[in-house]
Amino acid sequence: MLMSQSAMPVPTRKVQVDLANRSYDILIGPGLIEAAGGEIAARRPGARCAIVADETVAGLHLKRLEASLAAAGLAATRFLVAPGEASKSFAVFERVVEALINARIERGDLVVALGGGVVGDLTGFAAAVVRRGVDFVQVPTTLLAQVDSSVGGKTGINSAHGKNLIGAFHQPVLVLADSAALDTLPAREFRAGYAEVAKYGLIDDAAFFSELESNWREVFAGGPARLNAIETSCRAKAAIVGRDERESGERALLNLGHTFGHALEKATGFSQRLLHGEAVAIGMAQAFRFSARLGLCAPSVAARVEDHLAEVGLPTRIQHIQGGVSPVEGLMAAIAQDKKVSRGALTFILARGVGGAFVAKDVDPAAVEAFLKTEAAPA
């Protein structure tokens, strides 16, 4: 009997990050957690694995990953951390590093990050420094991690001065983006990840953004539209990373919305009041409104961006943050610590239109502060 179309297996999609002898695959599709053991063993036969996951993700996916590794003949240990941005700290980082050393993870072994962006960033940084660098695999379980943080080798933890200020470039050897894992995400988490999907259209792919405007409900519902969005996002990021691994040029475009967004995250204490993707959504809307204020794009363009983000349920303004944020002076202090600041000069990703983002250097701090005061004013 023929299988129904809905029951047909979904082919795994593959995107390669081209970095010469450090190139690696991003595999996208359902069932990749169950297939992880075979995929890892094919690349690192006999390696011992140390899995790092947060407690919430562990309850959902860890047993299946461990069973897959065991079936492939790969021994594995586990280490769990608390969920949330607070785990990207020196204290938790030290615990992860010591756990990997205690597990006798050697240079021929693997560290496996199972979870969202927090676990991926934290685990990748630990892998970068243990024994001066061991290989690691990303198994991202959130939309945000699948389309953004798991790809490209940026790893790190937060400082009291700002987000991701301590870290290293350390590329994974494999990314396994199990699309079925997204079915376990709370709606708020999925929406937050969608902000990073929309970002790729806003940077340099106006056609993709238009497609999202028309089909975002299908992306949220799952199926081919979701896989297409993940694959398109990963291809866009992989191409940029392949050309500019260490963000000396165009890779900075991937930070669209992040300068404003990171400042807002710091202002909310890296708490659940504002998820990373929500901060990016506000930041992208601000980047386009600031661009319009500077005469770089039409106000209607900024309104179009804001309208789409709002339509999917994302916040787009400071006033949408529960509990408010610190005064503008606090936001400016955080912006001054941004990683893109060069010799004290502010750098922003601004836009001349949808799909027309560019790196703007030497942005006048007074203009940014005046803009933020307008943004922070009561509606």
Results as ranks from 00 to 15, higher is better:
residue 184 T to L: 01
residue 200 Y to L: 06
residue 233 S to P: 02
residue 218 E to M: 15
residue 218 E to I: 01
residue 228 N to M: 14
residue 196 E to G: 11
residue 217 R to M: 15
residue 235 R to T: 10
residue 164 N to F: 04
residue 241 V to Q: 01
residue 203 I to E: 01
residue 190 F to A: 10
residue 160 A to S: 12
residue 177 A to M: 00
residue 214 S to A: 14
residue 232 T to R: 14
residue 167 G to H: 01
residue 236 A to N: 14
residue 156 G to D: 04
residue 196 E to K: 00
residue 227 L to T: 11
residue 245 E to G: 08
residue 154 K to G: 01
residue 224 P to E: 12
residue 222 G to T: 04
residue 187 A to Y: 10
residue 177 A to N: 03
residue 158 N to K: 00
residue 208 F to M: 03
residue 236 A to R: 12
residue 232 T to I: 02
residue 176 L to G: 07
residue 177 A to R: 03
residue 166 I to H: 01
residue 214 S to I: 15
residue 176 L to S: 05
residue 221 A to M: 14
residue 237 K to E: 02
residue 175 V to K: 06
residue 181 A to W: 07
residue 160 A to L: 14
residue 171 Q to D: 13
residue 180 A to C: 14
residue 211 E to P: 00
residue 157 I to V: 09
residue 172 P to F: 07
residue 215 N to F: 12
residue 218 E to D: 12
residue 221 A to C: 07
residue 184 T to K: 07
residue 149 S to T: 05
residue 152 G to N: 10
residue 206 A to W: 04
residue 206 A to L: 06
residue 187 A to C: 12
residue 236 A to E: 12
residue 217 R to Q: 15
residue 153 G to L: 00
residue 209 F to H: 11
residue 202 L to K: 03
residue 192 A to S: 15
residue 196 E to L: 10
residue 163 K to V: 00
residue 236 A to F: 15
residue 180 A to H: 14
residue 156 G to H: 01
residue 168 A to I: 07
residue 215 N to M: 12
residue 210 S to M: 12
residue 230 I to P: 02
residue 210 S to C: 14
residue 150 S to H: 05
residue 167 G to C: 06
residue 159 S to C: 04
residue 154 K to M: 00
residue 188 R to V: 11
residue 239 A to Q: 11
residue 196 E to I: 08
residue 177 A to L: 09
residue 158 N to V: 01
residue 199 K to E: 07
residue 163 K to L: 05
residue 159 S to A: 13
residue 196 E to V: 06
residue 190 F to Q: 08
residue 176 L to K: 08
residue 226 R to A: 09
residue 190 F to G: 05
residue 201 G to T: 02
residue 154 K to Y: 05
residue 195 A to P: 05
residue 151 V to P: 02
residue 164 N to V: 02
residue 226 R to V: 09
residue 166 I to S: 00
residue 242 G to V: 01
residue 204 D to W: 07
residue 189 E to L: 13
residue 226 R to E: 05
residue 178 D to W: 11
residue 163 K to T: 03
residue 151 V to F: 07
residue 175 V to T: 09
residue 166 I to G: 00
residue 195 A to K: 10
residue 203 I to R: 01
residue 242 G to C: 06
residue 167 G to Q: 01
residue 237 K to C: 08
residue 245 E to F: 13
residue 160 A to H: 11
residue 149 S to M: 01
residue 159 S to F: 00
residue 189 E to I: 12
residue 176 L to Y: 06
residue 236 A to G: 15
residue 186 P to R: 08
residue 191 R to A: 09
residue 202 L to D: 11
residue 171 Q to S: 13
residue 188 R to I: 02
residue 163 K to G: 07
residue 241 V to C: 02
residue 186 P to I: 08
residue 236 A to V: 06
residue 190 F to P: 06
residue 168 A to P: 03
residue 231 E to M: 05
residue 207 A to V: 15
residue 212 L to F: 09
residue 206 A to K: 09
residue 230 I to H: 03
residue 168 A to H: 06
residue 229 A to W: 11
residue 191 R to M: 09
residue 225 A to C: 05
residue 210 S to D: 15
residue 201 G to V: 08
residue 190 F to N: 02
residue 157 I to K: 00
residue 179 S to D: 08
